[in-house]
Deep mutational scan, measured.
Amino acid sequence: MATVKFKYKGEEKEVDISKIKKVWRVGKMISFTYDEGGGKTGRGAVSEKDAPKELLQMLEKQ
């Protein structure tokens, strides 16, 4: 499965596409929420050019 690499609050993070719950576009950025486990929801964003094609496909399906 594909992963998304991004920075959040200065920390490098990587999340599996299957854990992503919601995806939306903000200008040229793709924002998303994902399941961190333990009932927590994380947030992240990547630029449109750095987003994996699976993430862009999720955006188109909504």
Rank of each mutant, 00 (worst) to 15 (best):
G37P: 06
V4F: 05
T3I: 11
K7S: 09
Y8N: 03
K5A: 04
I20R: 00
G39F: 12
E54A: 07
Q62C: 12
E54F: 12
A2D: 10
D16Y: 12
R25I: 08
K19V: 10
A45V: 07
S18N: 12
E14T: 05
E48T: 09
K53D: 14
Q62T: 04
K9M: 14
A51G: 12
Q57A: 09
G42V: 11
E14P: 00
V15H: 01
K61L: 12
K28Y: 09
S18R: 12
F32Y: 01
M58F: 06
K5G: 01
F6G: 01
Q62E: 10
K19M: 13
S18Y: 10
K5M: 03
R43G: 05
V4G: 00
S31D: 13
L59F: 02
F32Q: 00
K7Y: 13
L59W: 04
R25S: 14
G10D: 14
K28Q: 10
E36C: 08
E60R: 03
K7Q: 05
M29V: 06
E36H: 11
V26R: 08
F32M: 10
E36F: 05
G37W: 14
E14D: 04
E11F: 05
G42Q: 09
Y8K: 07
T33Y: 08
Q62G: 15
G10P: 00
L55Q: 01
E60V: 09
E12K: 05
K9L: 15
Y34K: 00
D50C: 13
V26H: 11
Y8R: 03
M29H: 08
L55F: 12
F6M: 01
K9N: 15
V15Q: 01
A45H: 13
M29R: 08
K40V: 14
V46M: 09
G38H: 14
T3L: 12
K61Q: 12
F6R: 00
R25L: 14
T3Y: 06
L56D: 06
E12Y: 05
G38K: 14
T33L: 10
M29C: 14
K40E: 13
M58V: 08
S18W: 12
G37E: 12
A45S: 10
P52T: 07
Y34G: 00
K28W: 03
I30S: 00
K61C: 12
V46H: 03
F6Y: 07
E54G: 10
L56Q: 09
M1C: 11
V46N: 04
L59R: 01
A45F: 14
Q57F: 12
M1R: 06
G39A: 11
K49R: 13
E60H: 05
M29N: 10
K61Y: 06
T3Q: 05
G10H: 04
K21N: 11
K13V: 14
I20Y: 00
F32G: 01
Q62L: 07
F32K: 00
S31E: 13
P52K: 03
T3N: 04
K21P: 02
L56N: 06
W24Y: 04
V15Y: 01
E54N: 07
K40C: 12
D35H: 05
V15K: 01
G37N: 10
E60L: 05
E11S: 08
L59H: 03
K40H: 14
V23H: 01
R25T: 13
K53C: 15
V15E: 03
S47W: 04
K53W: 08
Y8M: 07
G39L: 08
G39H: 08
G39Q: 04
D35K: 04
P52S: 06
K49Q: 10
P52Y: 02
A45E: 13
Q62K: 01
G42R: 10
K53M: 12
S47G: 11
T3R: 02
K21T: 14
Y8C: 13
K22S: 08
G38W: 13
T41H: 15
G27D: 15
D35G: 09
G27E: 14
K22R: 06
E48C: 13
K40N: 15
E60K: 06
R43D: 15
S18I: 15
K61S: 14
K13I: 14
K53N: 11
F32D: 00
G37T: 03
Y34T: 01
I17V: 07
E60F: 03
K28M: 07
G38P: 13
G44S: 02
E12P: 04
Y8S: 09
P52C: 13
A45Y: 09
G37K: 14
V46R: 02
P52E: 04
G10W: 02
D16F: 06
M29S: 13
P52I: 14
K22H: 04
E48N: 04
Y34M: 02
S47P: 14
E14M: 04
M58D: 02
V23F: 02
K22W: 10
V23C: 13
F6I: 05
K5V: 09
Q57C: 11
G44V: 05
K49S: 12
G39N: 08
K9G: 15
S31T: 13
E54L: 10
S18M: 10
S31A: 09
Q57H: 13
T41F: 14
S31N: 15
I20G: 00
E14F: 03
K7A: 08
V46W: 01
E60I: 07
G42Y: 08
K61P: 07
I30M: 05
Q62P: 14
E54I: 10
Y34D: 00
D35T: 05
S18F: 13
K53A: 04
M29E: 15
A51N: 02
T3V: 11
W24G: 15
I30V: 09
K28G: 14
K28I: 07
S31F: 07
I17H: 03
I30L: 10
D50R: 08
G10N: 08
R25D: 08
V4M: 03
Y34E: 00
E60D: 15
Y8T: 02
P52V: 07
K53T: 08
E36W: 06
G37C: 15
K21H: 15
E36Q: 05
D16S: 08
I30P: 00
F32H: 00
K7P: 09
V15R: 01
K40L: 13
T41E: 11
E12C: 09
A45T: 05
I17Q: 05
K5T: 09
S31I: 02
L56K: 10
Y34H: 09
S18T: 07
M58E: 14
K49P: 12
K22Q: 09
E14N: 14
E60A: 09
I17K: 02
I20F: 04
D35C: 14
G37F: 05
K40R: 09
T41R: 06
G44N: 02
E54R: 05
D50Q: 05
E14H: 08
Y8I: 13
K9T: 02
E11K: 05
E36I: 13
V46P: 00
T33C: 14
V23M: 09
